[in-house]
């Protein structure tokens, strides 16, 4: 079984977000594998052990993403592909992934439900549509028996259990697997694993970024005592007008 895991390279979730010159200010920021993609990778590595799968990690990014890709290799991916381009938008990234997947016949294409930076949540659906496959999002459990997968998909107020034949795309989230931390042996091996750099195809880009802004800060928090809940209720009614 061949698994492709798509990895985004995003600021650590504890990062303070700021912008300068109409771009993300990455000064002092550390970058990680997208937290949702990390779940997808962890499940893929588990399947590698239980289903004799090979796992390829793919990232669309310039050379600064290579430490993140090496981390995916250290966690357990067998090899990796970097498409050498800025990940302009979801359509651009999906086009690159679909282009590679067309010739490689992966049984499973896994990624996170969304990248934690731009929160598009579109790459899985776009790749699936381009390849005429199903996309299961958000996928909370994934088990494979023969050619059929059983999955749990989160829906509003609950979940549904579904089955789908391979190949397909899944956008993963917890608790599909526990995040894996690379061990020393993994880190050493990752240095020698193949990381192929390929050129990007150039689709027509339909989205242009104009400007960024930060949300307004909340004004000072108004405090109440537990013996004066009537005042809080009045404030919610008359001042905030939310109840």
């Amino acid at each position: 079984m061949k698994i492709l895991v798509c990895i985004s390279h995003v600021p650590d979730t504890t990062s303070k977000i700021k912008f300068s010159d109409n771009a993300l200010d990455t000064n002092g920021m550390s970058f990680v594998i997208g937290p949702y993609d990390d779940y997808a990778l962890a499940r893929a590595v588990e399947l590698k052990e239980s289903h004799k799968a090979t796992v390829t990690a793919i990232n669309v990014g310039k050379s600064d993403t290579e430490p993140t890709i090496r981390k995916a290799l250290a966690i357990g991916a067998d090899d990796a592909i970097r498409v050498d381009a800025e990940p302009i938008d979801a359509f651009f990234v999906a086009t690159q992934i679909a282009e590679i997947a067309k010739s490689e016949n992966y049984d499973l294409i896994l990624m996170g439900r969304e990248a934690s930076d731009y929160n598009g949540g579109q790459v899985h659906g776009m790749v699936a549509e381009m390849l005429d496959m199903q996309a299961i999002v958000p996928c909370m459990t994934l088990d494979i028996d023969g050619n059929t997968a059983t999955m749990t998909r989160e829906i509003e107020g609950g979940k549904e259990i579904i089955t789908c034949d391979l190949p397909f795309v899944a956008g993963c989230q917890e608790p599909i697997a526990e995040w894996k931390i690379p061990n020393m042996r993994g880190i050493m091996m990752a240095r020698k694993k193949p990381l192929k750099v390929v050129e990007a195809v150039q689709p027509e880009v339909l989205i242009e970024t104009k400007s960024y802004e930060l949300p307004p800060a909340r004004s000072n928090c108004k405090m109440f005592t537990s013996d004066d809940m009537a005042s809080l209720v009045r404030a919610l009614k008359e001042e905030a007008k939310v109840i």
Binding site: S116, T209, P215
Partner: peptide, 20 residues
């Protein structure tokens, strides 16, 4: 045609122009 999107899980917004 420009829309405002929430990004970085609510920590920022971006204005994007949609073409085509």
């Amino acid at each position: 045609f420009v829309v405002k999107r929430s990004i970085f899980t609510g920590k920022a917004f971006v204005d994007v122009a949609l073409k085509g």
